[in-house]
């Protein structure tokens, strides 16, 4: 970047450029169907998922190959998470939760590749995911429990005088869920990538002697490798928690 030397300044760091959505095949206007770099990377995400979970398990071996055992470990991990948190009834929704988990995980991990585009760093994507979870969990709660789903907000174990206040708090926190749910994931992805880009800018500005920024990039990259997996896990576990609330609203 810095080598472009725009306007004589050595520091032309544009950490947010990597998040710009561009049409794949030129043109300026982005309408709802235009294939963009986001489309491309979602497609690559799908291909990676297919490679691991379909191509990797093609042997159906009793003694698994390496890729098959990775697929099995992920399957077992999510399955156990759903079972532990949402109970046996929650297992009916396991394919949905697994879809969310695997998509976020692969989108996050692929976003760590240099020059790639991180679909999950956009609030439009994480927000859609979070709202989808929120809406479906709320509908499910009412369908499964009817009006008694509202007892989620009426803490019967609290003293009677406190209950209305707690109910207001509970309702607010319930509606804040999709916000925190989506911003946690999108914000983490965006921040990490932006930090790496900033250090990359420093490295570019310092040229060959850029030891400190490169070490910093390595450190942040290592941290991001953790964050990427942990955020996918957190998003999924919170989905399970919300699902559990919908299935068992009575505390």
């Amino acid at each position: 970047m810095a080598t472009e030397a725009e306007g004589g300044s050595g520091f032309n760091i544009h950490p947010m450029d990597q998040f710009v959505i561009k049409p794949l095949f030129g043109g300026e206007h982005i309408s709802w169907y235009t294939p963009t770099n986001a489309t491309l990377w979602m497609g690559i995400t799908i291909l990676a998922i297919v490679a691991l979970l379909v191509w990797g398990t093609r042997g159906r071996a009793i003694v698994p190959s390496r890729t098959q055992s990775v697929a099995e470990v992920i399957y077992g991990f999510v399955y156990k998470m759903v079972e532990d948190i949402a109970g046996k009834e929650g297992l009916k929704y396991f394919p949905y939760i697994f879809t969310v988990f695997i998509f976020i995980l692969f989108a996050n991990v692929l976003g760590l590749l240099p020059m790639s585009f991180t679909t999950t760093s956009h609030i439009a994507v994480t927000g859609t995911l979070a709202i989808a979870v929120f809406v479906s969990v709320t509908i499910l709660g009412f369908v499964k429990n009817g009006v008694s789903f509202l007892s989620l907000f009426w803490i019967s174990s609290a003293p009677l005088a406190l209950r209305p206040i707690l109910a207001i708090i509970e309702i607010i926190s319930y509606f804040v869920r999709p916000v925190s749910h989506s911003i946690r994931l999108g914000g983490n992805m965006m921040a990490g990538h932006a930090v790496i880009k900033v250090f990359a800018g420093f490295a570019g500005a310092l040229g060959l002697g850029a030891v400190a920024p490169i070490i910093a990039i390595m450190a942040v990259y290592g941290l991001e490798s953790l964050v990427v997996v942990i955020q996918a896990y957190v998003f999924t576990i919170l989905t399970c928690v919300y699902l559990n609330d919908a299935l068992h609203p009575h505390h």
């Binding site: 959505i21 982005i30 309408s31 709802w32 169907y33 235009t34 294939p35 963009t36 986001a38 489309t39 979602m42 497609g43 995400t45 799908i46 879809t99 969310v100 998509f103 679909t119 956009h122 439009a124 994507v125 859609t128 995911l129």
Partner: peptide, 10 residues
């Protein structure tokens, strides 16, 4: 655009 392609992908 993003929401459309996200829904398709999911």
């Amino acid at each position: 655009n993003q929401i459309f392609w996200l829904v398709v992908s999911l």
